[in-house]
């Protein structure tokens, strides 16, 4: 029997021939979904103002994307989720107490300047959300480091508490992050309120500590990250080498009594490390695409994080570490690129 073929079956075109269903919007919105557990944990611990701050960041990011693309006469891409994701990530790195203008201005810096002015999606050198946060931290150092004690604001018996403080944070109950205490008062003070060391680790895992909106709960972040890894949207290389390096070097250098006495677990579980390692260092655009390069990238981030945490002025170094390594991503890629078979040396 003769197989009937259309004429178009014989037309040969240039590659790619196989098209994946994975598109930029699909990936971006999946990452947004994977961040929801962290966001919900933030709401649980810090109240509904979390939603307000995050929404301001997202609105600011979407508006900046639209505004700059409109000015530049480029097609409007606010629907592809990348600006939404940057806004959400920025929101998750803010303390819940920030005044309303900080999310708006820093989301413009994040998306309008860091991403759009450098050429839009795929062309930015630095992670937009992190630049937004760095800008905010340098510009409003006090507002960006006034943490509050998590207080289970979303308690069903006292639903009113969840709605308090939405417009502006009025409660005076401030607290320091574990890393902040570690920097200023030493490791003994970190463990002081707890009967056993394990209690502190448990609290860090659940997220019962002062900190940015989305960084506190390690479990919530791991759920989202696991989801992304199962979908193969992020690979294990960067997070694992990042966390391992931080653990190793904080164990070696972190102790007061000499080498190899640091508390590695405390360093790995606290700060913005989990959020940074899984969701920011793995950003496609600003991290190396070669597997070996990703290991090097994570290693560099880890060393810088430990150095900033232990030796520099800031208590937390994840943000600056990732930003510094972002500069090196193209260099890493170029030097660890797989050799093409058959290519002569020196060409």
């Amino acid at each position: 029997m003769e197989i009937k073929r259309k004429e178009s079956d014989f037309i040969v075109t240039v590659s790619p021939h196989v098209r994946s269903v994975e598109t930029v919007p699909r990936i971006m919105w999946t990452v947004v979904v994977s961040l929801l557990p962290a966001l919900l944990c933030g709401v649980y611990f810090f109240g509904l103002r979390v939603i307000f701050v995050t929404a301001l960041c997202i609105v600011g990011a979407l508006f900046s994307e639209w505004f700059v693309e409109k000015l530049a006469g480029k097609p409007i891409t606010i629907g592809d989720g990348s600006a939404f994701l940057s806004g959400l990530l920025l929101g998750l790195t803010m303390p819940v107490t920030v005044p309303f203008y900080i999310p708006l201005i820093s989301s413009f810096i994040a998306v309008g300047i860091t991403k759009q002015i450098f050429g839009g999606i795929g062309y930015n050198i630095f992670n937009p959300a992190l630049i937004g946060r760095a800008f905010a931290l340098i510009t409003w150092p006090r507002a960006m480091t006034s943490w509050v004690e998590p207080s289970k604001m979303f308690d069903l018996n006292n639903i009113g508490a969840a709605f308090s403080n939405i417009g502006m944070w009025l409660d005076g109950k401030t607290s320091a992050t574990p890393l902040g205490i570690l920097k200023l008062e030493g490791i003994a003070k970190v463990f002081e309120p707890y009967a056993a060391k394990a209690d502190l680790y448990m609290n860090l895992l659940i997220g019962q500590r002062a900190g940015s909106i989305g960084e506190t709960s390690v479990i919530a972040i791991l759920i989202g990250a696991l989801f992304l890894m199962l979908r193969r949207y992020i690979s294990w290389h960067i997070p694992v080498s990042y966390l391992a390096t931080v653990g190793l070097f904080s164990w070696i250098l972190g102790g007061k009594e000499g080498l190899f006495t640091g508390d590695a677990l405390l360093h790995v579980l606290s700060g913005g490390l989990m959020l940074g390692a899984f969701f920011m260092a793995t950003d496609y655009v600003t991290s190396p695409s070669v597997k070996k390069g990703r290991l090097v990238f994570g290693f560099g981030c880890g060393i810088l994080t430990v150095l900033i945490r232990l030796k520099a002025g800031y208590p937390e170094g994840v943000m600056f570490a990732i930003l510094i390594m972002n500069c090196f991503a193209p260099l890493i890629d170029r030097n660890l690129k797989q050799k093409v078979f058959g290519l002569r040396k020196g060409k």
Binding site: I113, I117, F135, I138, T139, W140, P141
Partner: peptide, 20 residues
């Protein structure tokens, strides 16, 4: 209002935006 403007980073930011 914007402390960063006094730092070198703010200088580069301002110069770049004005250049644009």
């Amino acid at each position: 209002p914007l402390l960063i403007m006094l730092l070198p980073a703010g200088g580069f930011l301002t110069t770049g935006l004005l250049m644009g």
